[in-house]
Design a protein around this nucleic acid. Structure first.
Lengths: 200, 200
DNA sequence: ACAGATATGGAACGAACGTTCCATAACGTG
DNA sequence: CACGTTATGGAACGTTCGTTCCATATCTGT
C-alpha cells in the first residue's frame, strides 16, 4: 500500500448522484463534479475512470437507495394498499421540495438509455428486479385477501412502478401538489376500492 | 424585398424536431442541425436566432402535430373507449419502430423544463390545453352513456395523457411490445370495463 | 531512513461547442 | 441596369468540454 485516498468514494458518488439528478448527464460537466467534490481531475480519473463511468457508479448507487426505500415502504406494517399509497405520498413530498428532483432513474431512462448501452442494461435489469419484488408483495397481499387484482400481479407491479416514476414527469410541467395527488389517486385505484366492512 | 430564402423554414423545423427528438437537446449540436438541413450557420442564425430558439420552434411544431393527431384519434368514429385504445395502440406502434422515438414532449419535460423557463411555460400551457380537450371528450362520452367515470373527467384526462407519454419511458428500458400493451391495458382500464350486453 | 507505490494539484491538450463576422451572391425595385 | 436589401458560405472566435500528464506529496513496508 501507499498513500491513502483523501476522500471517501461513496461520498463522491453521492455528490455525483445529486448533480446528475439535478442537471442531467450532459449538463453536468466534469468541472462541476470536481468543484462539488473537491477532488482534482487526476484523483477523479484515477478513482473512477471518467465521467461516464462515474455516472454509472452514481446510477447504481441511486438504484440501491431507491430499491431499499421502496422495499421499506412496501413492507411497512399497515397493509399493502396503504403501503402503496405511502410510496406515492413520499414521492409527492419529495417532488414538492424546492429544486424538485425526480428520480435519477427517470432522467437516465429518458436521456441516456437509448444512447448509452450500459445505462440501458443497468436500468432494464433494475426495473425487472423492482417489478419482481413488487409483484411478489402484491401477490402476497392478494393471497391474504387484502385486495383483488384485476390484472396479473407482475403487470400491476410494472404499471405502478412506472406510474411512480411518471409522477416525476408530471411534476415537471405543473407544480401543483393537488394535481400530483389526484394523479396518484387514480394510479393506485388499479388495486381496486378497499372492501368496506358492511354493517349487517 | 431582396434575395429570397433558399430553404423552407417549416422543413428546417421539421428536421430539427427529428434530431432533437432522437438525440435530445444537449446532444444535438448546431453543426448536426446544419448538416441535416443543409443550411449554413449564418442562415440558421438569421432565420431562427440560435439553437435554443430553434428548439422552441421545434417544440411548438411538434406540439401542433401531436395535438392534431390526438384530436383526430379521439374524435374518430367508434366510441371514446376504443378511440382511447387507438391512441395507445398508435403510440405502441410508433415506439416499436427502429430508432424508437418517444415524444419530444417527454424529452423536453424531463431534460429541460426545469432549466429552461420558456420550455416549462410552453409545456405547461400545452398540457393544460390537451387535458382540457381530452376532458371534454370524456365528459361527452360519459354523458352519452359510453362509460362511467370514477374520477373527475379532467383528472382522468390528465392521467391518461401522462400515461400515454409514460409509454415512451416504458419503451426505453424494455423493448417488448407485449409489455407496452399490458401497460396500456391497465391504463385504459381506468375508464371502467365495457358494459356487456347481458342476455336476458 | 530509504525505497516503492499510490494520490494529489493543476497546467495543458486537442476537440467540440454555440456564435459572430464579412465578403460575396442573388434577388426585387426604380 | 444599377441600387438597396437580404441570404449564403465558411472562416474564425472565445469558451468549455472531457481527458492526459507530470512533478510533487504522502503513505506503507523494510
Amino acid at each position: 500500500m501507499a498513500r491513502p485516498k483523501e476522500f471517501d468514494e461513496q461520498e463522491v458518488v453521492a455528490k455525483a448522484v445529486e448533480l446528475f439528478q439535478r442537471k442531467g448527464y450532459d449538463a453536468t460537466s466534469v468541472r462541476d463534479l470536481l468543484e462539488a467534490t473537491g477532488l482534482s481531475s487526476s484523483s477523479l480519473y484515477a478513482a473512477f475512470g471518467g465521467k461516464e463511468q462515474l455516472f454509472l457508479r452514481a446510477l447504481k448507487a441511486h438504484a440501491v437507495i431507491e430499491r431499499q426505500t421502496l422495499l421499506e415502504q412496501l413492507t411497512a406494517s399497515g397493509g399493502m394498499r396503504s403501503n402503496v399509497r405511502a410510496v406515492f405520498e413520499g414521492l409527492i413530498h419529495l417532488l414538492m421540495e424546492p429544486d424538485n428532483n425526480s428520480s435519477l432513474t427517470l432522467r437516465a431512462a429518458v436521456e441516456l438509455a437509448a444512447g448509452m448501452p450500459p445505462v440501458f442494461e443497468l436500468l432494464s435489469e433494475y426495473i425487472q428486479e423492482l417489478t419482481a419484488m413488487f409483484a411478489t408483495l402484491l401477490e402476497d397481499a392478494a393471497a391474504r385477501g387484502e385486495m383483488k387484482l384485476s390484472f396479473p400481479a407482475a403487470d400491476v407491479a410494472h404499471y405502478l412502478l412506472f406510474n411512480a416514476y411518471n409522477l416525476g414527469m408530471v411534476a415537471r410541467v405543473g407544480r401543483s401538489e393537488e394535481q400530483l395527488r389526484r394523479y396518484a389517486d387514480i394510479a393506485v385505484s388499479v388495486l381496486g376500492e378497499p372492501e368496506q366492512e358492511v354493517a349487517a
